[in-house]
Every structure is written in C-alpha cells, then in structure tokens.
Nucleic acid binder design. Structure first.
Lengths: 211, 211
DNA sequence: ATACTTACCGACCGTTCGGTCAGTTCACAA
DNA sequence: TTGTGAACTGACCGAACGGTCGGTAAGTAT
C-alpha cells in the first residue's frame, strides 16, 4: 500500500488499469450500481488488489473523479487568449468546450451525474470546482466584451455564460434521446450545433448598430 | 395481488404511500441505491407488502416513472394557446415550463436521471416521450413565428426550441452547485432568470427592423 | 357461520455486496 | 543468497440485498 487516500502522483500499470476500468463503469452506471468485483474483472485483476491500491470503494471513486477533473481542465487553457472580436473568441471558446466535452464523454458523464445526487459532499465540491473554472473564464470574457462596447450592457454576464454552458452540457446529455427524435438533425453534428447556438446567442447579445 | 405490471388505474391508500416514498427515494439516490426495505420504512409498511402491490423492484420503478410523466405532461396544456406575439407566447411557454419543472422537482430529477443511464430501455423511452412532447410544441411555435415573419428565417426551429429547453433543464440541474458560486445571483430567482434568458434568445431570433 | 379476497407482516432464503486475511510471487538491494 | 517490500490472489466474513413463504386481520358476499 503505497499512495492512498487519493493523493496520487505516480501510478503503476495495474493501478492505471483499475482507474480506467472504474471510470468506464462508474460513468456508465453510477457509484452504487458498480461492484468492486466488476471493476476487478474489467481491469483484469483481483478484488483484493484494488484494495491494495485504494483504501475503499469511495476512495477509488474520488481518485477517478480527480483524474477526470484534471483532464477536463487541462484542455481549457489552449483556447483562452485567441485574437479577434469577443464574438469570435466566445464562439471559439464554446465550440472548444463542446469538443472537449465530447472528447471526454466518460469524465463529463461522471461529473454531470454528481449534479443529480444530493449527498456525496466531496463529489459536489469537485463538480463546483471544475464548473466554476469554465464559468469564471466565460463571465470575464463576456464582461470584457461589454466594456469594449461590443455587447449590450443590459445583460447579466453570468447569465450569458450560464446559457452557453447549459447549451453545451445539455447537448451532451440529451444526445442519446434526441437521436430518436427525427426533427432534430443538428444533434448529429456538434460543430453545426455550436455554430447555430452561438449565432443566436451572440446575435442576441450584440449592440445594435455594430457589424 | 390486484393490479400489477404497472397498468395502474386506481390505487389504495397504502399503494399511494408506497409510490410516494419510492418517488422520493429514487429521485434522491437513483434506482440501485435505494433498497426495498428503505422504501417500506418510509412508506410505513413492510417489504412483503410492496411485493403484494408490485411484482418487483423494476415494476415499482416504472410505476413511479409513469405517474411522474403523467403529472408533468398534464400541466403543459394550460400555456399553449395564449394570445400575443410569438415572442410573448414563447416567453410564456418557457417560464411556464420552468415553473412546472421547479414545482415537480422529484419528477424532473427522476426523468433527468434517466438521460444519464444507457441501459433501462423502458426508462429512456418514457423520457423521450415526455421530452418529445414539450419539444414538438416549442418547435411548432417557433416555426409559426417564422411564417409570421416575426423570427429570422435562417435559424433552425428545432435548435431554437432545444436551446430554450436546455436553459430550463440545466438551470434546474445546476442550481445546487451554482448556489455556491457567488457571482451567479440569478440562480435564486427563477422568473428573473427566465426573463433574462428569453430576452437574449428572442433578441437573437428576431428579424431586424421589427419592434 | 362460512368462504373468499385483499392488505398486510415476521421470518427466512439464496445471492451478492464491500471488505479482510493469510499467503504467494517477484523485483531488487545488500 | 538472503531479505524486504510491493503487487497480487483464493478463500472467506458479516451484512445487506431482492425476493418468497406461511400466516394473520379485516371486510364482504352468500
């Protein structure tokens, strides 16, 4: 038992396999619906070996969440300081976030699932952390756009940011269901969707009399 | 054993208590995290009595979902054929839906939870049903607004409808987390939120040169 | 009174759960 | 070669799970 209580820095091969298997299963079915035996089976190891690396089921879950968060917030920095108008930068940020979400479906599902369970104090804190990060950057960007007289002054920047995030998150969440609703073709093309959403949103935020 | 397999028409007092307890717990923790004993305890009855009314745990869950859906779609008809511009009607519809969501948090949480679990074929069908209902009406309303030359022609009505729903759903879902983010004051006032969202959205959809 | 049905319950069953224990394998340092 | 700690495992534990059994209490129709 080397590094426990989710203070990971270096993982062995076996530990990595356990984390991956756990992430897959936890994202698919949720905490309680996944047994340690199932994780062990998918990771091609034994149940006691999991307890050799993690002190209990909850500790394993937290470790999975932490790696998910780390991965999610890593890809965020790239799109931040692009050039162009705030409309363009905002659109870039939004499409980037959606691409990020769809590129890490398991992590997203994991985090999104936490928003629906009242208990698990720790899980909600983690969620708040990763959500708050994206949120703050978006709010700041919108606010700068207002100071630059590009966006209307009478809209709440936090609300605008929230709308962008909600459009992306709900797109991900509702995809499997919307797939079966024939009218919604946009669900199959994330970039078209992102484009359309930001078109309406930006158009609604722009000052009148600008380009 | 009288009426089983979720083909309910009339419920006795005891059965109603079981359904209510089950709805509360299922919404709070999810299917697998709730034990039949816990439901029996909350309903002030015994576990075997639950099996007298429902043939198994899954049947009970489906029964709970059905009553939730019935309640959700009932409150929908009121706001449909209001007078006014399409902008006003759309705003009314949206605020009505959000009020409906917040007035039936347990049902909403139950349905929202189904969107995150891949299995449970039946549950997803139910979700698709109740979501599709709202969705269709919204799409039709936006489309009419376009034919009336009130809204831009170059936006996808299904996408606009989706954005409205996503704003409402994600508001509900993210509330407990946004509560702890100080910048987001709008989270405490649903009607202000709804107003702000629809302001941006409608503004983004309006034809230029109209009032 | 009798017979039948419905609502309900204590006790119990087989199974699976999270978690433990004693012990093995193996790499590597002394 | 021996020692040591980390990686790993089969067998097992008490507890809790979903579900069943036999039976009771109460209403109701005959």
């Amino acid at each position: 038992m080397q590094n426990q209580s989710a203070n990971k820095t270096i993982q062995s091969d076996g530990e990595q396999a356990i984390l991956e298997a756990a992430e897959i299963l936890f994202a698919q079915k949720g905490f309680d619906s996944v047994s340690m035996s199932a994780i062990a089976g998918l990771a091609n190891t034994s149940k006691p070996n999991i307890y050799h690396h993690f002190k209990n089921k909850n500790d394993l879950y937290l470790a999975v969440m932490k790696t998910a968060v780390r991965r999610s917030s890593a890809l965020l920095d790239a799109v931040e300081d692009a050039p162009g108008t705030f409309s363009q930068r905002l659109t870039g940020f939004s499409t980037g976030q959606l691409k990020n979400i769809l590129g890490h479906k398991r992590s997203t599902q994991l985090i999104l699932r936490e928003t629906l369970t009242e208990d698990s104090q720790q899980g909600q804190e983690i969620t708040r952390l990763v959500m708050g990060e994206v949120f703050s950057r978006l709010v700041e960007m919108v606010h700068q756009g207002q100071l630059d007289k590009e966006f209307r002054d009478d809209i709440d920047p936090t609300l605008a940011a929230f709308m962008i995030i909600s459009a992306n998150m709900f797109f991900f969440q509702a995809s499997p269901i919307m797939q079966h609703i024939p009218e919604a073709e946009f669900i199959d093309d994330a970039s078209t969707y992102s484009q359309g959403v930001m078109d309406v949103l930006i158009n609604g935020m722009l000052r009148r009399g600008d380009s």
